[in-house]
Simulated scan of single mutants.
Amino acid sequence: MLKHKSWQSLWAIASLAIGLSAGQAVVADDDPLKVGFVYVGPVGDYGWSYEHDRGRIDAKEYFGDKIETTYVERVPEGADAERVIRQMAQAGSDIIFTTSFGFMNPTLKVAKRFPKIKFEHATGYKRAKNVSTYLLRTYEGRYVSGIAAGMETKTNTIGYIASFPIPEVIRDINAVYMAAKSVNPDVKIKIMWVSTWYDPVKETEAANALMAQGADVIIQHTDSPAPLQAAEKKGVKGIGQASDMSKFAKNAHMFSIQDKWSSYYINRIQKVMDKSWVSEDYWGGFADDMLVVASINDNLPIKTKDAVMNAYNDIKSGKLKPFTGPIYDNQGNLVVKEGHSLTDQELASVNWYVKGIDASIPK
């Protein structure tokens, strides 16, 4: 199994590669398929990047010597991302998965230069003939999180640590609040923007600031267990992000919403092997078992557990669609008509807070 390589070492590989053309290296039919992954955080974040790398490892175990995988971690969104992706392409990759929203434009730029290579971008919305997009219905997990938060808060205040004001994060904040409001009409949500996906220090500071403002349930859209650990110290509740974070907060951890990428990576790699890969926009969620409720704490009241699992099952079966109208934004505008459930395209462009959220979206 190939281990982590810096982008500098990838450049060295690219420089030594033989048979590179304008599109891709010439690869014999019996050579392993070369699969690259680009991560925004460290594989040890115990959150987003950690779960993507578990998917990579599972794919490697599934295919064995039929594939060769490599990854680069801690890649900043921007010029560095474009360099890393380009160097992976030059090194002879057959398919490259880029796993953060800010990798969208860099991925498209490199894909245009290497039309024979397949690219997959997580959480984005721009596609090309050789660029596919994929993401999770994280709002489904946020909705069940909101139900638990609304039922368990004693101060009627939920704290939300937000990363960047992109549609995914905004719709997830809305999902938490709508769900919490459905079980607790007095609930409020306070939002703290940290402008990072992974920074344990900033995440801890944000959690402490929210708790100082009365929040006694912490929900995060960042990737380290630091917010849960801060909640544990203060004796309040929290929910794990992207991975099972139960071991980091024995008492504070209510449950985690865990991402499961393995089936997707195996499926898409197989399609490249079969020469049946086509660009598409894929959304996975509860129904696909790509998003699960993990490690519900024994200390959670039965009533709350039942409410969480009932909502989970209703969403999974399609009985409950969280973004079904009528929904008003916090300016009083009707943004989802009665009876209408937002389409994937509409979900991908959510840029408003729902009625009751007393905050503005950062520019």
Score class of each variant (00 low, 15 high):
residue 150 G to T: 10
residue 139 Y to A: 09
residue 156 N to Q: 06
residue 102 G to W: 06
residue 119 F to E: 12
residue 130 N to W: 12
residue 151 M to A: 06
residue 106 P to Y: 05
residue 124 G to R: 01
residue 126 K to L: 14
residue 144 V to A: 12
residue 102 G to V: 05
residue 120 E to R: 10
residue 133 T to P: 02
residue 118 K to W: 10
residue 129 K to C: 02
residue 108 L to E: 06
residue 142 R to G: 07
residue 165 P to G: 04
residue 156 N to I: 11
residue 150 G to W: 07
residue 146 G to T: 03
residue 104 M to S: 12
residue 127 R to H: 03
residue 159 G to V: 12
residue 142 R to T: 07
residue 127 R to Q: 10
residue 146 G to I: 11
residue 117 I to D: 01
residue 140 E to K: 01
residue 154 K to N: 13
residue 123 T to C: 06
residue 167 P to G: 11
residue 166 I to S: 11
residue 152 E to W: 00
residue 161 I to V: 09
residue 158 I to W: 11
residue 130 N to Y: 06
residue 124 G to D: 05
residue 121 H to V: 05
residue 134 Y to D: 05
residue 129 K to E: 14
residue 162 A to Y: 00
residue 154 K to Y: 09
residue 135 L to P: 00
residue 162 A to C: 08
residue 142 R to Y: 13
residue 109 K to A: 15
residue 121 H to L: 04
residue 158 I to T: 08
residue 111 A to E: 05
residue 125 Y to D: 13
residue 118 K to N: 14
residue 103 F to P: 01
residue 148 A to I: 02
residue 153 T to Y: 06
residue 131 V to D: 05
residue 132 S to A: 15
residue 130 N to G: 06
residue 157 T to K: 15
residue 106 P to D: 10
residue 131 V to I: 08
residue 166 I to P: 03
residue 153 T to N: 04
residue 121 H to G: 05
residue 167 P to D: 11
residue 103 F to E: 06
residue 120 E to G: 01
residue 162 A to K: 00
residue 159 G to K: 10
residue 158 I to F: 06
residue 140 E to C: 11
residue 123 T to Y: 10
residue 165 P to M: 03
residue 145 S to E: 15
residue 128 A to G: 01
residue 115 P to V: 10
residue 105 N to Q: 12
residue 147 I to H: 06
residue 143 Y to C: 07
residue 122 A to Y: 14
residue 129 K to N: 15
